[in-house]
């Protein structure tokens, strides 16, 4: 085919369109359709906005939303920890490469694996409490996964532990790409480490920090299923203490025979995720500009 035939670009994007249409296209249409139907089996009668009405009127749904929002609290923590660690690594102290290797390790471990390990460590009669007792820190001995007041915080701790690793690598790579002469100039001016970090380095990392924040926000909204599933005993427990939107959808679908309800919540979740992606796009565009 001739290079400048008008068909060429379409041939290039055709496989993409086919793949996405197959996996997402039909599915998303059915999803929207289901959200307006009372589905039994694989279909059901139209019921207008009833599913949305029911969901928005249910305390459990709002509890799930609030838990997702609480998970957003991990984001500033992750940003700060990752920033400090990246800046420290950037100092290239002796042995920094080993630290870099180790600090990224959590991200390599699969969530279903690491959550099982952590769940064991945080058992009431488990190793973490054993160590705390041995150190005479009895006041810190908590029922990490068994108490309704603590369980969500334990999940958040696990999320921070793993997802911060991505932040470290992202931030470090941005630092490595900086113009060395700027930093050298600051160093020669006698600026302390903290001054250099605050006035020279961090201002140039705004883009990557924003990127990490948006990526993390999407994670907190729609990619925490595996964490919660393992730590919350498969049900978002104890009680409903670790129930999140993804698990709400999963339960509606798999466990309570309500595909229509699951579809309605999915549509809501998708809409909110889209907003976040849109925000990401704006961030990137401003970066490029």
């Amino acid at each position: 085919m001739r290079r400048n035939s008008p068909l060429v670009p379409y041939l290039f994007v055709l496989p993409l369109i086919c793949l996405l249409a197959f996996v997402f296209g039909l599915s998303l249409i059915r999803l929207v359709e289901f959200s307006f139907k009372q589905v039994r089996g694989i279909d059901g009668p139209w019921i207008g906005l009833r599913n949305y009405e029911l969901v928005l009127g249910q305390p459990l749904f709002w509890e799930s939303v609030i838990h997702n929002l609480k998970l957003f609290l991990t984001i500033p923590v992750m940003v700060m920890v990752a920033l400090v660690l990246a800046l420290l690594l950037y100092e290239r102290l002796p042995g920094w490469r080993i630290h870099r290797t180790i600090l990224f390790l959590p991200y390599i471990l699969a969530i279903p694996i690491i959550a099982v390990v952590m769940k064991e460590m945080f058992q009431f009669s488990g190793p973490v409490n054993a160590v705390l007792t041995a150190l005479s820190l009895d006041f810190m001995v908590l029922d990490w996964i068994g108490s309704a007041d603590v369980a969500l915080w334990t999940v958040m701790g696990l999320i921070v532990w793993r997802e911060t690793a991505l932040g470290v690598i992202l931030f470090l790579s941005r630092l490595m790409a900086l113009d060395e002469s700027l930093i050298e100039a600051a160093r020669l001016d006698g600026a302390s480490w903290r001054q250099r970090a605050w006035h020279v380095l961090i201002p140039q990392m705004r883009g990557v920090i924003e990127f990490f924040v948006v990526i993390s926000a999407i994670t907190m909204l729609s990619a925490v299923f595996a964490y919660v599933y393992v730590i919350g005993g498969g049900r978002g427990g104890p009680g409903t203490a670790t129930m999140v939107i993804e698990l709400y959808i999963f339960n509606a679908l798999i466990r309570t025979s309500l595909p229509g309800i699951a579809a309605a919540v999915s549509v809501l979740l998708f809409a909110v995720s889209l907003l976040l992606i849109w925000a990401l796009f704006r961030v990137r565009r401003r970066e490029e500009a």
């Binding site: 459990l60 029922d143 068994g146 108490s147 309704a148 007041d149 049900r235 427990g237 104890p238 009680g239 409903t240 203490a241 339960n251 466990r255 309570t256 025979s257 309500l258």
Partner: peptide
């Protein structure tokens, strides 16, 4: 299923832990 997930399990757990 809905009663099982949203009442049967949470009640017992909440009495014991919460």
């Amino acid at each position: 299923g809905q009663f099982y997930e949203q009442a049967a399990i949470p009640t017992g757990q909440n009495i014991i832990t919460a």
